[in-house]
């Protein structure tokens, strides 16, 4: 099965400092990766590959223009009244798609990173997360996509996935975003009415309450029922929590201090 239809899903982001509406960087990476794959396939394959950029949500958002500047020549926008309808609206629009690209996490709304999973579940597509690079498998039999996945500590993994599939792009994907004003002027946004006339019965969701002031989260700690002895100990012998300064001693001794620290905190394995 070769790729014929590629789609990238884009959402409206929000600048972390100014709160200004903007493109969501993670989605832009996915879109740029899709654009590159499409033009590569169109240059090498005989059949034409179509690429669409899809947004479901509020119609009046100027931030979508950013995606035009970043390379989308055209954005399909589905006007969805409620957030709970987004998955259904997208799914209805993506049934004939072979490959759906999304960012890993939104900058607006719940930011749960669940959308691609819910979409894949709804459409019955495969899903690969943490993608850094994608290419069509050269082997016709495996018939799908080869994905380079991000794993922490400098590890990478190559996997193949059957199409149709949802690919979630990792924020560190080596993609250069190029914002060009001229493309913003020539690109178009096409607004569509939501194909859903009524919502499917709403699933159970958590009721979130947003706090007005951004605070540091409180770390969960076990309640210490310390003995008087232990309390006394902790009060007198304070744990050596950082800030240790070693001035005396020769270089060899200092090197041993460093080694000791690294071992103590299991930062090295020798």
């Amino acid at each position: 099965m070769s790729i014929k239809n590629i789609a990238a899903l884009v959402s409206v982001g929000r600048h972390p400092v100014s709160g200004e509406a903007r493109h969501c960087r993670n989605d832009s990476l996915a879109m740029t990766l899709g654009l590159a794959l499409t033009s590569h396939l169109n240059a090498t394959e005989t059949n034409t590959v179509s690429f669409k950029v899809l947004h479901a949500g509020n119609a009046n958002n100027t931030a979508l223009k950013d995606y035009l500047a970043l390379g989308a020549s055209h954005i399909d926008m589905i006007d969805v009244a409620a957030e709970s309808l987004i998955i259904d609206a997208l799914a209805a629009n993506l049934t004939n798609t072979d490959l759906i690209l999304t960012g890993s996490r939104a900058e607006n709304g719940l930011d749960s990173g669940m959308l691609p999973y819910q979409l894949a579940e709804k459409l019955g597509f495969s899903l690969v997360a943490n993608a850094l690079a994608i290419q069509q498998t050269t082997d016709g039999l495996t018939g799908g996509l080869e994905v380079l996945q991000f794993l922490p500590k400098g590890k990478r993994r190559s996997v193949t996935v059957q199409l149709p599939a949802v690919i979630v792009v990792h924020p560190l994907a080596p993609v250069e975003l190029r914002h060009a004003y001229a493309r913003q002027v020539t690109g178009t946004i096409n607004q569509q009415a939501s194909p859903l006339t009524h919502a499917t019965p709403q699933e159970k969701t958590l009721k979130w309450q947003t706090e007005t002031i951004l605070r540091k989260p409180i770390k969960l700690k076990a309640r210490e029922n310390k003995s008087g002895h232990a309390r006394m100990l902790s009060a007198t012998v304070s744990e050596n929590k950082g800030g240790a300064v070693v001035i005396e001693g020769n270089s060899v001794e200092k090197a041993q201090v460093i080694l000791g620290y690294l071992r103590e905190h299991r930062l090295i394995n020798f």
């Binding site: 607006n108 930011d111 958590l206 009721k207 979130w208 309450q209 947003t210 951004l214």
Partner: peptide
């Protein structure tokens, strides 16, 4: 958890 792109902290049961 953080929501709205890290601009808000949201609580739930």
């Amino acid at each position: 958890n953080y929501q709205l792109g890290g601009n808000a902290i949201a609580l739930a049961s």
